[in-house]
């Protein structure tokens, strides 16, 4: 069931990419693309894709859309943060690496969390070991893992926990 869901989602993603590449659409291209996408996804060439971790309940989909908006907001804020730090004459940085922990279990959830951390204000993911994530923070505000986790991870984790556990 899980691998079937992963393969269906992978073929859907391939088909959407195909439709975006062949911009003025025609029926023939759409059908041929769907057939080839299904074939590629179901051929036993690739290991199971992590897309099977996505939940498809209505609540998870609603949280997915909310997550996109939270992510875009964090991305814009992080760019203004970078602009402030780069253009400030005194260069207000105080870098360090802190350890945060995550409650997410699935590989897809951890991948999305690590990518989100990299694109949010002042942090990049350096290393990931089990449930520990080591984060480079350009202006360290808290060194103990609990408050660093609340400051860096908490915002995304509550969405990702619903979307892909």
């Amino acid at each position: 069931m899980r691998t079937l869901k992963a393969k269906m989602l992978a073929s859907l993603a391939l088909w959407v990419a195909w439709m975006l590449l062949t911009a003025p659409w025609s029926n023939q291209e759409a059908i041929a693309g769907a057939v080839v996408a299904l074939l590629v996804a179901f051929l036993p060439l690739f290991p199971a894709s992590p897309l099977g971790d996505l939940r498809l309940t209505p609540k998870a989909i609603a949280y997915g859309f909310a997550y996109v908006f939270v992510f875009i907001k964090a991305l814009v804020l992080s760019n203004f943060d970078v602009a402030f730090r780069v253009l400030h004459p005194k260069l207000p940085i105080d870098p360090g690496i802190v350890r945060v922990t995550t409650k997410l279990k699935t590989p897809l959830g951890r991948l999305l969390l690590a990518n989100s951390i990299t694109l949010t204000p002042g942090t990049i993911t350096v290393e990931m070991r089990g449930e520990d994530i080591y984060v480079h923070w350009i202006k360290v505000a808290a060194t103990d893992p609990e408050s660093a986790t609340a400051a860096i991870v908490g915002n995304f984790e509550k969405y990702l926990e619903v979307i892909c556990g």
């Binding site: 780069v86 870098p95 694109l119 990049i124 350009i138």
Partner: peptide
């Protein structure tokens, strides 16, 4: 342009990465 300025102004590779990737 901001990422280019960040690459030049920041003091070490990690901070350059911060400016470069996000911008």
């Amino acid at each position: 342009l901001l990422s280019g300025i960040g690459l030049i102004r920041m003091p070490d590779a990690f901070n350059r990465m911060q400016a470069g990737t996000k911008a």
